[in-house]
């Protein structure tokens, strides 16, 4: 038969053999991102160890300056320890996000898979997404809270609802694009069942953008939680969240800026870090 052509030896790989996600986190952007996000997450997880006070205990020491003995970050207008409120606020935000983002992602992906079954279903799902997007997000938040009353649950639901179309559209596009790729056709001609074509060929190639979207969604979740607190429809006081503490500090900006400093720095670090990670992932995937 024909002469054996050996695969060209020693051809340098154009791309590092490492997994793209790991490569993204190891890039400069990824490292800075992690350095910003990890301490915040750690503070939230270790809140009970770090706080030293209950976040809701009031004292007579109102608006104490940072460095006051026993109150490293000072106290707020009601004399509550700001460090405790900050770390428990982070903890509350993490709890909400950890529930809401996976919920939104899961539902969004389910809708996308549903849409992939038939063009008619696809049109219906698309229009439903359009409708959700046609309502300004925060108006939606107000409406949901009006129905359910303020609390943790509405915040989780609003965030999830906002994420559904984002994930849904992304995965739908991915499936539509990958389904028409020649290797998908090749797999069908090669006898693979529709389920196998979907799970083995289409989904693995459509999943990368979703990973980026998760990082983006986390920042959106931080934003929505904060915004709802500012609008007075967030988690019920006196429970602290990052948004709640920041919104309570607004009247005292001129006299006690340290009141706002903690959440201000924390939120900024968190969202910047997450955005950098999202960018790093995106760059690595698009290569």
């Amino acid at each position: 038969m024909t002469a054996i052509t050996l695969p060209a030896p020693g051809k340098p790989a154009r791309r590092s053999p490492r997994h793209p996600y790991r490569a993204a986190l190891a890039s400069a952007r990824g490292r800075v991102g992690l350095a910003l996000v990890l301490p915040v997450v750690l503070a939230g997880v270790l809140a009970p160890l770090l706080a030293g006070h209950s976040p809701t205990d009031q004292s007579d020491l109102s608006l104490a300056a940072p460095g006051t003995p026993g109150h490293l970050l000072g106290t707020d207008d009601l004399g509550r320890d700001l460090l405790a409120r900050l770390v428990y606020g982070i903890r509350a935000d993490l709890g909400i996000i950890a529930l809401a983002v996976p919920l939104g992602a899961l539902l969004g992906c389910l809708f996308a898979l549903l849409a992939a079954t038939h063009p008619a279903v696809d049109t219906a799902v698309q229009r439903a997404f359009d409708l959700v997007l046609a309502f300004p997000g925060l108006i939606l938040a107000l409406a949901v809270t009006a129905i359910l009353g303020p609390g943790r649950l509405p915040v989780v639901l609003v965030i999830a609802l906002a994420e559904i179309p984002a994930f849904g559209r992304l995965l739908r596009t991915g499936i539509l694009v990958e389904r028409e790729r020649e290797y998908a056709t090749a797999a069908r001609v090669g006898g693979a069942s529709p389920a196998r074509v979907l799970t083995r060929h289409i989904l693995p190639n459509a999943v990368d953008p979703l990973v980026v979207q998760i990082a983006v969604s986390l920042t959106v979740a931080v934003f929505i939680e904060g915004a709802m607190s500012f609008l007075g429809v967030g988690v019920r006081p006196p429970q602290p969240t990052l948004g709640a503490v920041l919104s309570q500090s607004m009247p005292y900006l001129a006299d006690a800026p340290h009141f706002a400093a903690g959440p201000l720095i924390t939120v900024t670090a968190l969202v910047l870090g997450l955005s950098l990670i999202a960018e790093a992932l995106n760059r690595e995937i698009r290569r």
Binding site: E182, Y183, P204, N205
Partner: peptide, 15 residues
């Protein structure tokens, strides 16, 4: 009946 495709880049699953 089997098929060989035109584009040797696009017809193989990169993963």
């Amino acid at each position: 009946i089997q098929m060989v495709f035109q584009d040797p880049y696009a017809s193989l699953n990169p993963r």
